[in-house]
């Protein structure tokens, strides 16, 4: 079960990263003012990095085998 959940979490993690990259790209490319692009990107990345980091830490500290049943 652990490898399966590891794989699922990897997919989820890369989805977060992809969404984050698209948001940063849009701010950088389409903002009308450079200052608002910098502010938006900085704000997004700071909070996003903290959330992603804690999410990964929490996932790897989960006792997956203890939480889920061993067999169905």
């Amino acid at each position: 079960m652990r490898p399966l959940f590891g794989l699922l979490y990897t997919v989820l993690f890369f989805s977060y990263i992809t969404a984050g990259l698209f948001i940063v790209f849009h701010f950088a490319r389409y903002s009308l003012k450079r200052s608002s692009a910098v502010l938006g990107i900085t704000l997004f990345l700071v909070v996003f990095s903290i959330l992603i980091f804690t999410n990964a830490l929490l996932f790897f500290s989960l006792p997956i085998d203890a939480i889920l049943p061993q067999s169905f």
Binding site: L12, Y16, A19, G20, I23, F44, V47, F48, L51, I52, T54, N55, L58, F59, S61, L62, P63, A66, I67
Partner: peptide, 19 residues
Amino acid sequence: KNARFFLFVENTFFILLWI
């Protein structure tokens, strides 16, 4: 163990809300 799982779920929701 449940507290960590609960925190993980909450954190996931916060990421989705932020995005």
